[in-house]
Nucleic acid binder design. Structure first.
Length: 165
DNA sequence: GCCAACGTTGGC
DNA sequence: GCCAACGTTGGC
């Protein structure tokens, strides 16, 4: 019945951008590992975005602090709302003494490798194509490592990365 | 390596 | 609750 298709169409997909320094962990590392827990985020606004992610959401993998910086590819959220294990590990640089198993402060997601873009999209290109209010990564001074991307912008990024724009 | 931007901490 | 000091991010 038609109602079935209308309900299917109500499923929401959200899009994100997540930064990593490729010297620390790159898209190519994720291609090798197939999936990884995105640990180490210690900013509350970024954590809140991580907590709102749902399985099946897509995230752009952004290479930061490298030359040139930019979007290298795509990944998919494969597990949602995990407690970041590094907060409990005294040997980790991300250890948080104020976190307990009963009251963890930091949540994250598991991401799964999706694709490496045929065309790496440099920050320069992103600045040419998008406005700071539409894509926060082109805002000057923006340091958030996890940001939402509006669907219409995400569609354009996908087209550019796949060489269809 | 420099440094602007900006988040966090802690004294008051 | 203010805000100076401090630490970190990340482009260049």
């Amino acid at each position: 019945m038609a109602l079935h298709f209308e309900q299917t169409a109500l499923i929401r997909m959200n899009y994100w951008l997540m930064k990593s320094e490729p010297d620390v962990y790159s898209l190519q590392d994720l291609a090798r590992d197939r999936h990884t827990v995105w640990d180490g985020v210690r900013n509350y606004q970024a954590r809140n975005f991580l907590k709102s992610m749902q399985i099946g959401d897509l995230a752009f993998f952004y290479h930061s602090n490298t030359s040139p910086p930019g979007i290298a590819g795509l990944m998919q959220i494969s597990q949602a709302n995990l407690d970041d294990p590094s907060q409990f590990d005294p040997g980790s640089k991300y250890y948080d003494a104020k976190s307990t198993q009963e009251k963890p402060r930091w949540q994250t997601v598991q991401v799964e490798y999706e694709e490496e873009f045929a065309h790496f999209i440099s920050l320069d290109r992103l600045r040419q194509e998008f406005q700071p209010d539409d894509l926060w990564v082109v805002r000057q001074g923006n340091r958030l490592s996890v940001i939402p991307v509006p669907e219409a912008i995400a569609m354009q990024i996908l087209a550019i990365g796949r060489g269809k724009a």
